[in-house]
Amino acid sequence: MNGGVTKRSVGLVAAALAVLVVLPFVVGTYFTMFVTEIMIMGIFALSFNLLFGYTGLLSFGHAAFFGVGGYMAAFLLIHGFPSLPLALLLGTLAAGLAAVVVGYFSVRLDEIYFAILTLGFGMMFYTLVHQWRSVTGGSDGLTGLVLPPLGIGGFQVDVSSPRAFYFIVAFFFIVTILVLSRIVASSFGLILMSIRENKERTAFTGINIRAYRLASFVVSGLFAGIAGGLFAVFDRMASPSMLHWTASAEPVLMTVLGGAHVFFGPVVGAVLFFVIEHVITQFTDIWMIFLGGILIPLVIFFPEGVLGTLLARRRGKRFKGSGGDKA
């Protein structure tokens, strides 16, 4: 299990970067938006996986931070806040603050108890947003955001243009990847992983488990908040469905599908999820039975997630090959 970014993957990343830049100029408007949404969900899933894959905590309430980020940004923009980046930043901070509170209580628990407790907190946030009609718009949410133009070096960029927003999201997507991959490769990340592997032993070395877990929880919440803010801007709305437990399930599904123990697993999972859904809904509206029918074998035959298992298989082959050379 290697959390960091290796040299080989740097080349891959460069290629991916090139594709990312060229893409909106070759595909149509819808696919530009399709990829935009995948990147947003990719940020969300990556943020979730810092907690799940690297710290060993399965959060089932992560949509709370996604939602808080989204609602904060939407609330500001709907009331005529003039700056998009600042709205996103404040959304992110609000999500981080929510994560401090929820994390403070939640990180004492482990495993399934942690999962259910975060689910409970997540649903409290959902209820709050759903019931507080005067501020959050209740079940209707905050809709019809008007986006202020973004000033970049003297240019005024119209954010509502799908291509412009694609690049904004791509920027955050890359920043998220850079920051999170740095974090997991740092000594902080190593401690998180050792907590995941063996909590007791790590505690013996004098490390404050709770503090590290909380830190991981908050960082994870911050990035979920970024994703939520971008999502609200992308959809011109914040709706309670962003905070429902079914929304918390999405990054879980994507991460497990792609592979929790490889850095890009959640991104691959997000891509797979969207592509599978897109293809299925193309020819049927009884999509659930097909989605389920595809998920089940994927889970059974890819024990480390799709990317995780493929990488492990290649690595296994290489080891076998080198073993043969020696003989």
Binding site: S139, D140, G141, T143, G144, L145, D235, R236, M237, S239, P240
Partner: peptide
Amino acid sequence: SSGVALSVVPV
């Protein structure tokens, strides 16, 4: 759904 309508109509 009304919630859906309110979010889609502005777009």
